[in-house]
Design a protein around this nucleic acid. Structure first.
Lengths: 220, 220
DNA sequence: ACCTGAACACCGTTCAAGT
DNA sequence: ACCTGAACACCGTTCAAGT
């Protein structure tokens, strides 16, 4: 792609092209492997060309994050609050699993911007309309968000580990190495615990527990 | 400390010294800033000296993680299952907040080893003795773990952002920039939402909801 | 305004070599 | 066994300079 013999023409670049290409590289090789130099080479320009559009690497990564958060349109589920927040949470998990790089970006830096305001609005409005207090609605929202983040992060990591057979071997070897004397219950539940490393059923179990635990707050 | 004039004497290094020093550097400057070269300089040796004890950087980071996970002794709380798992979860959160680098390590790679078998044993045993099914006990355990991970990760990041006044300014500016027309509920709950970015109360809210949501499973 | 090349101060890791 | 120095193939970013 990159033809280093000629100077890149003017306006080869624009923010959107940069972000899209960056996302492609991150998806292919992972966020940790992503570098400005590799991106520049892919775009057929020198590394410094990127600095016309982004002040530094962090800003570019933030732009990729905002691109992904903005692309997916929100669930507009109606009905009971349980159904509404379940729908938002499920949608967020799907987005995060579809784009592991987004997950890593979120796990690596705080959200400073209004990138998630729309999702937050839907969640807290559903809760407020259902009758939750201001404080409970706010706390429930963030609990939901951090749960989805943690669950997706863990699931994504375990999926990555299970990609190669070496990883699967390590996981099995670890379980087999556990002393039945020291950890009798863990050994007894080995199969069940292994099944919790990901999947829809595991996520829904947690989500159901969380939602179920919020219901009593309405009676206060 | 590092006296580059003379050759480092034999056995200046040992795994424990390396891990302890690495942890100190990570705590001071963050995991992302941590490098083998900086560690070697701090120890007064060449970078390659470390390779006698660890195959590569990842293995050393894993060793730091295992060091931290092994150091803290587990809660041995007795009594109702709710109290036992609450105690484990609270202890894990404290450990993670005390050592943000551990949090970043856990968020960055799967646990392959039996590092957390003791904590898992306590949780699943408490649940099994309370009458939960094998599957529910396993799922509840992982739900609890991922919730603590996500909550601590988010809290830790928001804390970091609020460290410097620039970060606090950004957070306030973000909230102020939100349109009351588009996000009326978010604007209305601005104060309450800001209060959910961390703290014991926020964590306990989520933990209570989760535990409360597990209770009905006992009646099936 | 938009892209470049050279340079700086870093990385992790391999390889061959000292003691 | 334990530590070294030189080298390789990378980084992000600054600075001065082209067009």
């Amino acid at each position: 792609m990159s033809d280093k013999r000629t100077r890149a023409p003017r306006n080869t670049l624009n923010p959107d092209l940069i972000v899209t290409t960056a996302l492609r590289l991150m998806t292919a090789d992972g966020v940790e492997a992503f570098s400005l130099r590799a991106l520049a080479k892919e775009l057929g320009v020198g590394p410094m060309a990127l600095y016309t559009y982004f002040r530094n690497k962090d800003e570019l990564v933030d732009a990729v994050r905002d691109h992904l958060l903005g692309a997916r349109q929100l669930s507009t589920a109606q009905g009971p609050w349980q159904h509404q927040i379940r729908s938002i949470a499920t949608g967020l998990r799907e987005l995060l699993l579809e784009h592991p790089c987004l997950l890593r970006i979120l796990a690596g830096r705080p959200l400073k911007g209004p990138e998630t305001a729309a999702a937050t609005e839907t969640v807290v409005r559903a809760l407020r309309e259902a009758g939750f207090s201001k404080e409970d609605a706010a706390r429930a929202h963030t609990t939901l968000f951090t749960f989805v983040l943690g669950a997706a992060l863990w699931e994504s990591q375990m999926n990555a580990e299970k990609q190669d057979r070496e990883g699967r071997r390590r996981l099995r070897a670890t379980m087999a190495s556990l002393s039945e004397v020291d950890y009798p219950t863990v050994v007894d539940l080995a199969g069940e615990l292994a099944a919790t490393s990901g999947g829809d059923a595991q996520f829904e179990f947690g989500l159901n527990a969380l939602i179920g635990g919020l219901e009593p707050l309405l009676d206060r």
